[in-house]
Amino acid sequence: MSDGATSPDPGELLAWYDRHARALPWRVPPGAAHRADPYRVWLSEIMLQQTTVPAVKPYFERFLTRWPDVAALAAAEDAEVMAAWAGLGYYARARNLLKCARVVAGELGGVFPDTAEGLRALPGIGPYTAGAIAAIAFGRPEPVVDGNVERVMARLYDIAEPLPGAKASMRARAAALTPEARPGDYAQAVMDLGATICTPRSPACGICPWREPCLARARGTQGERPVPAPKKGKPTRFGIAYAGLREDGLWLLETRPAKGLLGGMLGWPGSDWAEGTPEEAPPAKAGWQDAGAEARHTFTHFHLRLQVRVAHLPLSAKPARGSFQPLDPASLPTVMRKVHAIAAPALRHD
């Protein structure tokens, strides 16, 4: 390294981690005599994809209480797992979670592969998740590169190339630093460093265990690293959601197709989501009325604005789509909960 900086020492980071490791429900503390349970590591890593630690904690604990091992999860009903996942977002993860659990429980005798290569062959497990499980649960010296690690590498080596092009360089740097000894603790240490010290804004360089070898700190560019990709504007799509309440208190709901956005999740019958004016698509003959508010939600690639239509339906109603069911709003994905929050008061005061 240049600018008089020393080379990063993984041992220094591990010594910091031994004192400052975050206590997380899926983590084995540093210095423990046993490694982490592969099932717990896998479950937590799938949940943590594009989701924060505080958001994941209660879901992880509920899943572990309900399905304590991979065999229990594999035997669960799809609808139960999707309902338990509701609100966590990125629902393809839940579908792949079940697929993976059933492969491990059914074809692999309940035992996860102990190499990154073997793990990558499982549904829903990509390079990052495979590396994390291999390192943390099996002690393999695999690089584990999430957003926190990318930020640490970008600053440590003052990588000026913008994302996503810089990802290959960041991964190569991370791989070169990964030690043979304690690779699982090291992987978690780098992630903790990014989450608690080398944060996106106002990094605490003064207390960082790698402040001396950090090129960005030496050059004063830490606030500029990593260089983000140019932002693209998100389009807005429009749709209609129909919230029908039958006179016996059951709601008209449908399960969305397995493939596609919110696949396999419970929701309201509705129109297609398009960038133009949505076409009316009522699921049953009724006096549908506008609820007077839109349900707005932002997905990764677009904004969504849903008009909410409501109607009281008789016991004799024969819907063309969906079925009448009791409703626990917590079983709905977030955007569908927003529809319910608008529809329920409108129906009470209709």
Rank of each mutant, 00 (worst) to 15 (best):
R22F: 00
P209V: 02
A258V: 15
C100L: 14
L245Q: 02
A105T: 11
P30N: 05
F112I: 05
A341W: 08
P329M: 03
I159E: 13
K232C: 01
V149N: 08
R296E: 14
G276M: 12
F63M: 10
R171T: 09
Y91Q: 14
L48V: 02
T6R: 11
P127K: 11
Y39K: 04
M153K: 03
A79N: 11
R211Q: 05
A330P: 11
L73C: 10
G276T: 13
G287E: 10
T115F: 07
R321Y: 04
G89H: 02
L156N: 13
A79C: 04
A229Q: 13
R237I: 05
I125G: 02
A75L: 08
V227L: 06
P143T: 05
A216H: 07
W268H: 07
L97K: 05
A160F: 02
G165Q: 14
G109Y: 14
N148H: 13
S2F: 10
A229L: 14
D146E: 14
K259R: 15
W273P: 00
M47K: 10
G270S: 09
R256L: 15
F112G: 02
L327A: 06
A94S: 09
P235N: 09
R237N: 09
A76S: 15
A216Y: 08
W67K: 14
G194R: 09
G110L: 07
R305H: 10
G31R: 12
H312G: 04
D185P: 01
D37P: 03
A71W: 11
P235F: 08
P183R: 05
T255A: 10
T52M: 03
K234T: 06
D146M: 05
V310L: 02
C208G: 01
C208Q: 06
A116K: 01
P314H: 07
L97D: 12
Y242S: 09
A174V: 00
D185G: 04
V111Q: 12
R256F: 14
H340R: 12
A137I: 00
A92M: 07
M153L: 06
G239S: 14
R95S: 06
T52R: 06
P269I: 00
P123K: 01
A229I: 06
K285F: 03
A33L: 03
P200W: 05
D3Q: 11
D290I: 00
P68N: 14
P123Y: 05
G206T: 12
D78P: 03
Q307Y: 00
Y17S: 00
D248F: 10
L261C: 04
D185H: 01
H349S: 15
M1Q: 03
P203Y: 12
W67H: 10
H34I: 12
P162W: 13
D248R: 08
A204G: 01
E12A: 14
Q289A: 14
L332Y: 05
D37Q: 08
G260S: 11
A172F: 06
G118D: 13
L266S: 08
Y242G: 06
P203I: 10
E275M: 12
Y91C: 09
A317S: 07
D272Y: 13
H349Q: 14
Q50T: 01
W268F: 13
H301V: 09
